[in-house]
């Protein structure tokens, strides 16, 4: 018995929660160190200005560079907002929320996350849920961007599916406070209107929507959809209050 390493009952599984929590909170859990020269593109607070003035990079051509330039463009804007010393935190968050809404397909994500329960939900439940999920995602995710302050963003690799409709952009956040480098992959899907939108954020191999689906499904299978929706509503309200 003495040989058995008695591990913490809550153990190391939490490590991947970087999308559920502020990145620096998991400091020490991940440090996937990459040599700097592996990164093909670098945006940091210092050279942001160049990146933004040269912002024509987000071309209209639907070539293989489209997914990459989409993420580059997005991160330029996000980092410039975060590191702008002239705007108040409130204003920053408002701007970030706008960007978030425009670049993330919350509708698709909401459907995926509810999974099989979406099919059996009534129209009213669907409507309630979709509105709440949209707010839940925004209000739980956007305030965390503050934690990226001072960080730099590196694109490691861009993989596009042969169809050209799906893409993965592998990135790494470096230099956030004292945390180790964090690998974050963005899954993107081309919308009906032909534009790329983010449909999943994968932190160190753990997918946001997959984990949310397990989380939501766990409660719904035990307590039912109506109960879950009411809980979602109170969570959204408390998140808004916390942020205000």
């Amino acid at each position: 018995m003495i040989f058995m390493r008695i591990k913490a009952c809550v153990c190391c599984i939490f490590v991947g929660f970087i999308f559920v929590m502020p990145m620096p909170a998991i400091s020490g859990f991940f440090s996937s160190e990459k040599d700097n020269n592996e990164a093909s593109d670098v945006i940091s607070a210092e050279d942001q200005a160049d990146a933004i003035t040269g912002g024509g990079a987000s071309g209209e051509e639907k070539s293989s560079g489209e997914a990459e330039s989409f993420v580059m463009d997005l991160s330029d804007k996000v980092l410039s907002i975060i590191n702008d010393t002239n705007t108040s935190d409130e204003e920053k968050e408002k701007k970030l929320r706008e960007f978030f809404v425009n670049s993330v397909d919350t509708e698709w994500m909401g459907k995926f996350v509810l999974g099989r329960y979406f099919r059996t939900a009534s129209e009213e439940q669907k409507q309630q849920y979709m509105t709440l999920y949209h707010d839940y995602l925004i209000w739980s995710y956007v305030p965390r961007f503050k934690e990226y302050k001072g960080g730099s963003f590196y694109i490691i690799k861009v993989k596009e599916e042969s169809s050209g409709n799906d893409a993965i952009v592998q990135t790494e956040m470096r230099g956030i406070k004292e945390s180790p480098n964090i690998r974050v992959d963005y899954m993107m899907h081309r919308n009906g209107d032909g534009n790329f939108k983010i449909i999943d954020i994968v932190g160190e191999g753990i997918s946001l929507i997959t984990t949310q689906r397990s989380d939501f499904g766990g409660m719904i299978s035990q307590k039912g959809l109506d109960y879950f929706i009411s809980k979602l509503e109170s969570k959204v309200n408390s998140l808004k209050k916390k942020s205000a």
Binding site: I13, F14, G16, S140, T210, T211, G218, K235
Partner: peptide
């Protein structure tokens, strides 16, 4: 603080991790 069903969240994250 954020999870609706921590048991399921942890299971999912453990397996993915």
């Amino acid at each position: 603080e954020t999870s609706f069903d921590p048991y399921s969240t942890i299971r999912s994250a453990y397996i993915q991790h």
